[in-house]
Nucleic acid binder design. Structure first.
Lengths: 337, 337
DNA sequence: ATGAAAGCGCTAACAG
DNA sequence: CTGTTAGCGCTTTCAT
């Protein structure tokens, strides 16, 4: 007969096996309560026996939902990826939270220029219900374009310029200010900073925190810029010392750069913290293992991820969300300061 | 009239605007060459003006393809995630390669037991064309289940037990053997190892390499196990020294554990490499920054990713692939040995 | 409580 | 080279 057993079972297959209609099977699959218990039961049995799994494409076509959320990591994010625990941490946080909501995480790596367009197409195609953007660089036009596309979006880190989309960020400046107060309280008077890239909000705000903190001292700022990675911290520290050999305190805008600074200081014969006290930012795992262990400003990386997920899920449901959520940071004091 | 301007434009909208049929528009969208140039041109214009983007769900429904590939990171993988550069590196490699092929990367984090089922459903639903599995633990039944589900799959790391799916791996044992030869060549005679978890192939094979290398020496093995993370390396080194204070060489199965060993050795007054030579495995970024810089066995993490992508793309196209690809490792000599 | 029927947006024969 | 016609597998009124 026409009993093609080939292919994966569809609603129709199940319906026939259970002696019901497609509609009723669909109701059972989607947990409708308006199905007679015994009928539902036999349908469930048929589903199990046939190993039926709904076809998400067919479902999306009619529901206009995909139950998946994109996490976009643009440009530099992927560069930093390899030696930084920030993005992995965010990914975990977002992933776990989405999993609880039974949503899928779709990772879009925006490494090249061309991928920018691909992403836009992808999002436009409504392959995802919403977007979490790890926006980093000021020049990034993606947040705007996504908003214009009418896709729910929330970004990690306040966008540079005016924030037109909701975001999750941490209290960069006040965390740094706490670090500065700590240094000053330690009696440090010649405090330099290794700043992050100034086209990223994190870089700017941490520098602002340093400058604010310095005001209390009435001292001149001493700034060298790095790229958040270790090597740049080593180099910046060397330039700093060349500019002023009497530096007795350093705030580095990332733990990796702080670790780099520690190395340069040691190499140039400075003892930490006796000669120079050092404080970092991030509180990544590696900070506990520097020599000496790094005093640092802790930021709740995992929570950033869960909050991002929470917000985007709300937005996708059409609910309102706060324009911004700013999570606290706190100073973790270890032996380097 | 019935000119509802609402909603996103569909093929039909474009067809009407360009005075053609849906089929022809579809041809243009999909780059068919059998369309008269001027017609194609006007269709393209209409597409641009209307901002038409194909609906992937509708397309998948008929083509049975989704043009996306899942990368599954099971259990421990996500745990290690935070302080290890391996998975981020693989993700980047896979992501970049897929991007070139215009495929999407869907990241599935299998953190909990329940997610195992979710993943199976997801894959069964054919939301992805193929799966790249970062299989790690011996007990993992996922490779089998996926194969049984008839989904193209390739794993990162040879599965424990018999390999039923194609995999990409590196030459663990021979890399370690090179490390052992180096140690022996340095005159080391009391060589211990900090092994990785023995329910992972990487852990086992690196231990096998150590044992092989030791044979040349005719010496008794000295083994403590860690979990690839830094803290476990610190602890294992301490146990090792307690068992034999005369150890003069150490092979650690990961750079992170090697770094841990370095710290314990320093704390206990051993000079590296004068008293004890240390070699790690992985060649992560951090290995260049340990004190002293770590001699280590390099594995091409990024290439593992690109190879994985390459293989799964082949499989999805229905082509044959080698049952296994094993990439070379090489010893990178730095000051710790 | 259940079924019939329509249709989501697209591709793929098949004619012409 | 182009249009017509059939669905892909599912949800969802609307009847019954």
């Amino acid at each position: 007969m026409n009993e093609t057993p080939a292919g994966r079972p569809t609603l129709e297959t199940v319906a026939r096996a259970a002696g019901a209609s497609r509609a009723t099977v669909s109701r059972v699959v989607n947990g409708s309560t308006t199905v007679r218990p015994d009928v539902a039961e036999s349908i469930r049995r048929a589903i199990a026996e046939l190993g039926y799994v709904p076809n998400p494409a067919a479902r999306s076509l009619v529901t206009q939902r995909t139950d998946s959320i994109a996490l976009i990591l643009p440009e530099s994010a992927t560069r930093v990826f390899s030696d930084d625990a920030f993005f992995p941490g965010v990914i975990r946080g977002v992933g776990e939270a989405l999993e609880k909501a039974d949503k899928q995480l779709v990772l879009l790596l925006a490494s090249t220029k061309s991928s920018h367009d691909r992403i836009l197409r992808y999002v436009h195609g409504r392959t995802v219900d919403g977007v979490v953007l790890a926006s980093m660089h000021g020049a990034d036009t993606l947040p705007e374009e996504l908003r214009a596309a009418g896709v729910p979006v929330v970004t990690s880190g306040r966008p540079l310029g005016e924030a037109t989309v909701p975001y999750i960020d941490v209290e960069h400046a006040s965390g740094v200010e706490a670090a500065m107060r700590h240094l000053v309280g330690l009696g440090r008077r010649r405090i330099a900073t290794i700043a992050g890239p100034q086209d990223m909000v994190a870089g700017r705000e941490r520098l602002a925190g340093y400058l604010n903190g310095l005001e209390a001292l009435g001292a001149a700022p001493l700034v060298e810029e790095g790229d958040f990675m270790r090597q740049s911290g080593m180099d910046a520290m060397e330039r700093l010392l060349a500019r002023d050999p009497d530096i007795d305190g350093v705030f580095a805008a990332s733990d990796l750069m702080a670790d780099g600074a520690l190395r340069t200081l040691r190499r140039l014969g400075r003892r930490v913290p006796d000669d120079v006290a050092v404080i970092g930012f991030d509180d990544v795992d590696a900070a506990r293992f520097t020599d000496p262990p790094l005093t640092t400003v802790h930021q709740p990386i995992h929570e950033i991820g869960t909050r991002l997920a929470e917000q985007i899920l709300r937005l996708v449901e059409g609910e309102e969300v706060e324009a911004s959520v700013v999570l606290p940071t706190r100073l973790v004091i270890r032996e380097s300061a």
